[in-house]
Design a protein around this nucleic acid. Structure first.
Lengths: 239, 239
DNA sequence: TCAAAAATATGACAATTGTCATTTTTAAGC
DNA sequence: GCTTAAAAATGACAATTGTCATATTTTTGA
């Protein structure tokens, strides 16, 4: 099953990580990569397993090697609000460590997920000793802050239909498409609703509507975006 | 008017800034403060003036010395969505500079505002040469990212009434109270609505409701929180 | 492969919140 | 202090979205 593709397991040395060029570690030198490689441990999570719990104080950060995870807060009624996703090459848990605050959003593996765990002290050691890395993490957090601002504006002002169209585009940008052109992530309609910030039935209804309009097609739970310009127009999203 | 209080103008040297202990500059040494003091310029904005425009590429950051500002995005219908506020000691514009992205939220002075402007190149110079400062800014952006996550969850799942109660508490936490116990910021009801993410009339109606219930009182545009535990309960906010 | 559980889909109805119109009050600027 | 414009307040009605119920389909795990 997995054997025909690249290994799911991270390499022992970060130097050989295939995600590195797109990650916060992209411009670290040999010494720095040596340090991290020495200090990290490789871990895996089964689909559905909680990687980090909201409210906890993590003792380290994870760099996802292969997999997909959702970051979500529980609302007052016990419903999840998905804040964002993380996938290959993404650093998770750093926000809580750096702000010295509890974890504000739980993290759960959406598929079997392999990651490198870097203990807090090691993480600080590398941050404090490497201005380049520190700046990379700064860039990352500032980028995410901008994305959060966009989501705030959407949630506050757009209709559910508009937001759904936008979420579909975000899913594609985050996870890409599989060989058949379907979004390369399978989410329940409940999870989609939990990202849009609406009731499951509303999400289902509007997905049906978009299907009838020919803007998406589905096969089981899978979704294919058939009319991206149309979705972008509905979502009032401009590049 | 202003003369009976501390000067609105920033001191020439950051060493004498009264906001410093609570800002990203709190643990910088004399050398570092010298550098920033040498490179900064003092600027002021009239109430209502735009400090930074959404979409622009800023050439520097501001550290607010005295004043209040709102950060807001324009929605597709031309309505503002207030993302958050900034006040004395807050660094603004850094997100765009560090992520190398355009400004994602305009910044407008809510009252006459005095700030220190640090050019981009100087800002990077200090960031790259001072691990402590870099870490402070990291801490700041990570804290703001956590706050944004909270707002996302509220906007997605809470009713307008719940969100209004929460916003009132946030306003108090951000700006404090004046000598008479009113929130030390005067906002139009439209601005409050633009933070809650609702129509102005809805915000007005719910403020009236909270007034009738005795949870708040008003004098003109000013608002006093009369029952903070009650508001916290409505807002489903826990410390 | 099969059975059971979970998820999806749809309809009917309810609730929340938005829009529009109008009157009253407050703030701003001279 | 006064005038005017902007904002606040309120009511009526409309629209969007949520809840509840039920049937159908898909997924899961043995």
């Amino acid at each position: 099953m997995r054997a025909t593709h690249d290994s799911a397991e991270p390499p022992l040395h970060c130097q050989f990580c295939r995600n590195r060029s797109d990650s916060a570690f992209h411009n670290l030198g040999t010494d720095e990569l040596d340090t991290i490689s020495r200090l990290k441990t490789c871990v895996s999570f089964r689909k559905g397993q909680v990687i980090m719990h909201e409210g906890a104080r993590p003792q380290g950060v994870y760099c996802i090697h292969k997999g997909k995870a959702k970051l979500y807060k529980m609302g007052p009624e016990g419903k999840e609000q998905i804040i964002r996703f993380a996938t290959n090459g993404d650093l998770i848990g750093y926000r809580s460590i750096l702000s010295d605050e509890p974890i504000s959003a739980s993290i759960t593996a959406l598929v079997d997920t392999y990651a490198c765990y870097i203990p807090k002290s090691s993480f600080f050691e590398v941050i404090e000793g490497n201005p380049k890395f520190s700046l990379n993490v700064l860039k990352l957090s500032c980028h995410e802050l901008g994305e959060a601002g966009k989501m705030i504006a959407s949630l506050a002002q757009k209709t559910v239909r508009e937001r759904l169209a936008e979420i579909l585009l975000i899913l594609r940008a985050t996870f890409g498409e599989d060989e058949e052109g379907f979004l390369d992530i399978k989410l329940t309609r409940e999870e989609i609703a939990n990202m849009v910030g609406t009731a499951t039935e509303s999400a289902i209804r509007l997905l049906s509507e978009l299907k009838e309009e020919g803007r998406i097609s589905t096969q089981g739970r899978r979704i294919k975006l058939e009319d991206r310009p149309g979705l972008r127009k509905i979502a009032a999203v401009f590049e």
